[in-house]
Simulated assay, not measured.
Amino acid sequence: MSDPVSIWVVSDGRTGIENQALGLAEAVQRLTPAEITVKQIRWRPLFDRLPSALKTPAMLASAPLAAPWPDLWIAAGRATLPLSTRIKRWSGGKTFVVQTQDPRWANDRYDLIVAPAHDDLSGDNVFEITGSPHRVTPERIAQAAPAFADRIAPLPHPRVAVLIGGRSKAFDLTQAHAADLADRIAAAVRASGGSLMLTFSRRTPEAAKAVMTERLSGLPGWIWDGTGDNPLFGFLHFADHVLVTQDSANMAAEASSTGKPVHILPMVALKPAGKFARLHEDLQSQGATRPFDGALDRWTYAPLAETDRAAHAVLEAMRAR
């Protein structure tokens, strides 16, 4: 493509949702010159819960979208669907429309759907990847690492990064279960003579966070309390092992892009694992992850680069059109 590709990244602005579309856009930009513009969509509260088919641009609380329209529209999340299905008509067919995840509505009206394989979605316009698109790359975490080197580099090996999720529709992290996980993690770190680097998610219940902090604070390392810059990328860069709770498809897929052993921590299941089981089977079949058994075993695998693979598919589909 001779001219830079103009890309709009469209979401409701929630970090986890926006990063899926932005990660894919950045992967496209690594392959071809491109200009990325982020657009955040918000609907007026009165209309927010309406079915997508009934929403119109006049119901937006955010600024209206207007030409010049982009070459490539990459959107994520339910809020974008009423616009994703109209942008091709508005642009006179110029804009190539990519939706991440399973839209579950009007799936034939997008040029390409980049969907997690564990969603079990099929169709001529569906491109499946392991996990969801994300922004984690070896280069990005290496660039972020120096900001945290003073605190992390002196820590003894093996350095164990622990990424804790929390309550969701499918899983819970009770205080008792959190205490048990903390004891198992502490035993593994002590037995190895290593150190701990732990971060909680926004979904981690306060009781679980408190008991894990109490039981793990005696280990060498760093339990991030949420103040200051987020050290996640520093943790991933300096880690020898990564432990991730099974509730987050995003965290597991992101950790698997490092090429480091990823140990999956069990959670309290609230319903059959379903798509989470399919995801973890996929990651395990690719050699990236194993269930945490209390030991810090090492293994190697080719780092997953699923977002880059999806970006190649987007550009190929655009050229083919």
Rank of each mutant, 00 (worst) to 15 (best):
S62Q: 07
Q284G: 13
A147E: 13
T95W: 01
L296Q: 03
E35K: 09
D247L: 09
L31A: 13
G93W: 05
R159E: 09
G226M: 08
G23M: 04
L181P: 08
V10D: 00
V114C: 04
N250I: 12
Y110D: 14
W69V: 03
F235Y: 02
S257H: 09
M197I: 05
P103D: 05
D102L: 12
L54G: 05
A142Y: 10
S52Q: 04
S52G: 09
A147L: 12
S62K: 03
A176P: 15
F238P: 04
S2L: 15
I141L: 07
G259F: 06
S84N: 08
M212D: 01
S248M: 12
S192Y: 01
Q29N: 07
K169L: 14
L112K: 00
T227F: 14
D12F: 03
K55F: 00
V10I: 06
L279E: 09
A170W: 10
I223E: 03
G131Q: 07
S11F: 00
H118S: 09
N19E: 14
L31D: 10
S91V: 07
A188H: 02
S285T: 10
S84T: 05
V98R: 02
V211K: 08
V136K: 08
P291A: 08
V97L: 12
P231I: 00
L112A: 02
I223R: 10
A79Y: 11
Q143R: 15
G13D: 05
L22T: 11
V5K: 10
A106T: 08
A170P: 07
P4M: 10
L173S: 01
T289Q: 06
P64L: 01
T100L: 03
T204D: 00
G259S: 03
A34L: 02
K275H: 15
A187M: 13
D225W: 03
A269S: 14
N19C: 12
A178V: 11
A207E: 14
P205K: 01
P51N: 00
A147N: 11
A149N: 05
